[in-house]
Amino acid sequence: MSMKRRDFLKIAGISSILSVGAKIAEATHPAWVTGPDPKQLVPNKQALSAKRWAMIVDMTKFKTEADTLKVIDACHRAHNVPDFRTPDGKVDKKLEVKWIWQAGFERAFPGQDNKYMSEHLKDMPFMVLCNHCDNPPCVRVCPTQATYKLKNGITMQDMHRCIGCRFCMAGCPYGARSFNWVDPRKAANLDVKRGGKLNNEYPQRTKGVVEKCTFCTERLQIGKMPACVEAAPKGALLFGDLEDQNSEIRKIITTRYTIRRKPDLGTGPAIYYLIGGSDHA
């Protein structure tokens, strides 16, 4: 972990934590088929908190394809994300569910590429995930508040309340959301009968609901950094409090040139990308 604990271990008033806890408890209740009883999710003292969680993706630190795959795998395993495959072993585009994945420069930043840019930059495997926008269209359009904002900036998803109308998928300009077109437990990686493995610490989902990255809210609650951050090469994914002047991510964003995806849409994405240049301390 490249970040000092005190950088993010800023416990806000106990009341705000409790309100977050209450929301999560409410969010978890019956639809989450298995998983911890919501009452156990009352935040403990080690919970990590922030005024505004955000992430930096430092592309200079991702050296090989294996680095990105490890990150994706860590998230998807931690969150019981189904991995649907066609009979020939390829990703099944019809049923695909993903929380974090990689995309080339032209894909992650459409319209910002040019004909003469280096192949190196073009082919960089940018990690893309939910941007936990400041002004998220997904939250605006949801007719049931099944997707909603936490005070700490996280865009949360309540898979119990979700009616599966998919308005949020049309609303998200980043393609960050996935729908469960079938029962996710039918995927080989989650189907216990076929040697699949479930993470029993994290709830499973039913078919017919939308899901996405939640900035590992459930891990922050027990004092852990997001799974992808832990699995990434040192410093490749930095997670911290944007509102804290002394946090590492704030210092980097203030002093270095970072880019975000489609900032012109006014969504205020909270994932910042460092592309190259000198190494940061």
Partner: peptide, 28 residues
Amino acid sequence: IMADMGQPGRFMNIMLHPSPQSVMFWDF
């Protein structure tokens, strides 16, 4: 709309959690 809904049984959530910022709420 019902045919398109992932969880049609939860249809009433639109009324139980009225969300005036959502166009779909108004459309309904």
